[in-house]
Amino acid sequence: MLIKSVELILVLTICTLIFILSISFVGNSYNSFREELYLLRKFYEGRVLIKSLTESQTFSNKTCNITDNLIYYLSDPSSFYEYMKSLGIRDNVSLEVIDISDGKLLFKIGEKRDNFLEFRRVCYYNGSLYLFSIKV
């Protein structure tokens, strides 16, 4: 009888432990999955934004080409945010356009964040090279 009750207590303890472990394991997996998904989403948002900004001209697939329309967009932050919204980008994004010959900052939209992914491209526009830096 004693052995039976000890066995029952042992089985119950082990079952409880396994249950707790399973719950914590599922929770941890879900959290790490969400973290990875968040990073991945940030990465693709940055890629979509930099590619759609610099490859907007016709026949410029994988080629950095800046249009006058883009410069007009960038001169007004609200239209830029509208553009981001149309692309379905929800996160805060900061964009800097710098003339690399003299280091002059042309446009700056958004604030720099602590943990960010950065995408940079150097594009030709109107006789000089400009650095497009997007931080997501």
Binding site: R47, K62, C64, F119, V122, C123
Partner: peptide, 20 residues
């Protein structure tokens, strides 16, 4: 493990910039 491959974007950016 969540496998995804995001390599190659630096190369893509570099190549598109070198065309400039």
């Amino acid at each position: 493990n969540f496998y995804y491959d995001i390599r190659g974007f630096r190369e893509e950016d570099l190549l598109s910039s070198l065309i400039s």
